[in-house]
């Protein structure tokens, strides 16, 4: 197996003086999708934001063998870390085309081609302001902003949050296509989507890693799912508080 693309070791982060991530360590393999799981508010989004330097953090982060934990956010991204934030965060006042133009670093024909192929909708709506799009379309813009560049890894935060089931499938398919070319670290609540995309899972609890392993193994074990993720694998399963 090849070296991991992203190594996180002893990562801690604070928001307004409050510890939100504590001593988290995990790796993202150079291929496929790694899912970062855990109950709500457990620090998944904060972990991703800490890796990007969007919040104050300590610890080691390596991208393809080079340390990036001291770099400012824009330099980290320039080194090939694509980011699809929670809640999409498209620029509502900008058009779809402008959103993409802003994100594009250099001109990568394959990136553009991939976006055009995955999201034909966006090509049609490129002159429309992103704020006037539906939630699903905004999510496509957000993903497209990451795919348009050649990246070493993508950090994708809750891409299906608040989307209609049909759109969820589109987003998952798009991510599956993207994963053929670039490894992805995925935060996702929808276990169906995790099952479809992820090979490996990392589970956080109160800001720490409590489980690591193949995705299928965890998802096929209802007890573990309930215990670690606080979701009922089957209706009627008992609440698994620790």
């Amino acid at each position: 197996m090849s070296a991991p693309v992203l190594v996180v070791e002893g990562l801690s982060a604070r928001i307004a003086g409050q510890q939100v991530v504590e001593d988290v360590s995990f790796e993202v393999p150079a291929r496929g999708v790694t899912a970062l799981l855990g109950r709500n508010g457990v620090g998944k989004t904060s972990t991703i934001r800490a890796v990007l330097g969007l919040i104050e953090r300590r610890g080691l982060v390596e991208l393809a063998g080079e340390r990036i934990d001291a770099l400012p956010t824009h330099r980290i991204v320039q080194r090939g870390v694509g980011y699809v934030p929670e809640d999409r965060e498209v620029f509502g006042g900008l058009t779809v085309a402008e959103n993409l133009r802003l994100a594009e670093r250099g001109s990568d024909a394959t990136g553009r081609e991939l976006v055009r192929e995955l999201f034909p909708d966006l090509v049609e709506r490129q002159a429309q302001s992103a704020g006037s799009l539906s939630g699903g379309q905004q999510q496509m813009v957000s993903i497209a902003r990451a795919l348009i560049n050649r990246n070493a890894v993508l950090l994708v935060d809750e891409p299906t949050k608040g989307l209609a089931p049909l759109i969820v499938k589109d987003v998952a398919d798009a991510l599956a296509r993207a994963a053929e070319a670039v490894p992805i670290l995925l935060v996702e609540q929808n276990l169906q989507v995790v099952r479809q995309l992820a090979e490996t899972v990392v589970v956080l609890e109160s800001g720490r890693v409590v489980h690591r392993g193949p995705a299928a193994e965890l998802l096929d074990d209802p007890d573990a799912t309930t215990r670690l993720l606080g979701v009922h694998a089957e209706p009627g399963a008992e609440e698994g508080e620790r």
């Binding site: 956010t73 900008l94 402008e98 802003l102």
Partner: peptide
């Protein structure tokens, strides 16, 4: 101009697109 308009809306996201605001 594009960077400024985007930055007025959401500055952290502009840096998260690899731009030195």
């Amino acid at each position: 101009g594009l960077i400024i308009r985007a930055g007025v809306e959401n500055r952290p996201m502009v840096t998260a697109l690899g731009i030195d605001v």
